[in-house]
């Protein structure tokens, strides 16, 4: 049995672990993360290695990888007296854990710098974004990848158009066509929507009129994608996204270009093409904000 310490974690989950009981089992094991399904509410929670960033329902542990432990799917997980037990392999002590809470930035009234930062962000995606998802790989000979990219591009554009024209039911249909679409554990369409939904939750964002739209997406997503990706979508629909995404939103809306490079780098490095797909979603959401300007009238929706 190895003993490790929790470094930081999502405020809500840490509170739950410290003040109530928690029972569950290991849902899936990766090199640097373990997902745990809670028996009480059926939600997924994540134990992650220390170099990853904070995220909703996530606790960071002072470890570099889990693959050296023999933790298996369905191993029992429970927490009592500020200690999390993972099967017979790992004890996580929460005596020094700090808490993290997702805080999205305020969308500024002066959008000049947002426009500049978005242009810069697009340039960086063009240069360093990873192909295979929202960014098509023009050289691939895989007909699956070619068709996936075509659908991703077509449906994301139609979604943006529908949102700009306040055609919510059309937007929902196009969003549903993105859920579960694409290679990877978190399909590219899901990642795009995570980025998009995060922008709707920024204070002062015109996109806040679409918060109901986000909730509807989650309703349809339950059967359209896997549990891991669904959890990220569900959290994003509540304005809860990982720390690197909140930092990127901060940098685009009110940061300096130097910070933006750093934040972009961090997000673009998520997964294979996941980070790039998320940034595409963020760009789409912020452009909706900018293009809509002051013309959006919530009463019409």
């Amino acid at each position: 049995m190895r003993i490790h310490h929790a470094r930081s974690g999502d405020l809500d989950w840490i509170n739950q672990l410290q003040h109530t009981t928690f029972h569950g089992y290991v849902h899936s094991v990766f090199d640097r993360t373990i997902n745990v399904e809670c028996s009480e509410n059926g939600e997924l929670y994540t134990l992650a290695c220390q170099h990853l960033d904070n995220a909703p329902n996530t606790m960071l542990i002072d470890m570099d990888r889990f693959s050296e432990l023999a933790i298996k799917v369905n191993d029992k997980v429970y927490a009592d007296q500020r200690i999390v037990h993972i099967g017979d392999q790992l004890l996580i002590v929460m005596d020094q854990v700090t808490t993290w809470e997702c805080q999205l930035p305020f969308f500024p009234n002066d959008i000049g710098s947002v426009i500049n930062h978005l242009a810069f962000t697009k340039k960086i995606i063009e240069q360093r974004g990873k192909c295979g998802g929202m960014k098509p790989d023009l050289t691939t000979s895989s007909i699956f990848e070619q068709e996936t990219s075509r659908l991703l591009s077509e449906r994301s554009l139609m979604l943006q158009e529908a949102l700009l024209q306040h055609r919510v039911s059309d937007a929902l249909r196009h969003a549903a066509g993105l859920i579960g679409l694409g290679p990877g554990l978190t399909p590219s369409g899901d990642d795009f929507l995570v980025g998009l939904l995060s922008t709707f939750h920024m204070e002062n964002s015109l996109g806040r009129i679409y918060l109901g739209f986000g909730e509807k997406i989650v309703d349809v997503a339950r059967t359209l994608t896997n549990e891991i990706s669904y959890t990220a979508l569900k959290q994003a629909s509540k304005g809860r996204v990982r720390e690197s995404i909140t930092r990127l939103l901060h940098s685009i809306t009110c940061g300096k270009q130097e910070e933006l490079i750093l934040s972009l780098d961090k997000v673009l490095n998520i997964g294979s093409s996941s980070g790039t797909d998320i940034v595409y979603g963020i760009v789409c959401g912020l452009e909706i904000n900018i293009k809509a300007g002051g013309t959006v009238c919530p009463q019409k929706l």
Binding site: F30, D31, G132, S141, S142, I143, F144, T148, L151, G177, L178, I179, G180, L181, G182, P183, G184, L185, T186, P187, G189, T223, L224, T225, N226, G271, S272, S273, S274
Partner: peptide, 30 residues
């Protein structure tokens, strides 16, 4: 994880004799 899946997919497509190889989650859209 996504990185492993993409890497597996690329390698599978390079196997001798394979015309198309797809490794992806079983979602409706895929």
């Amino acid at each position: 994880d996504s990185v492993s899946l993409m890497s597996l997919s690329t390698k599978a497509n390079q196997i001798e004799g394979v015309e198309q190889a797809v490794i992806a989650m079983g979602t409706e859209m895929n």
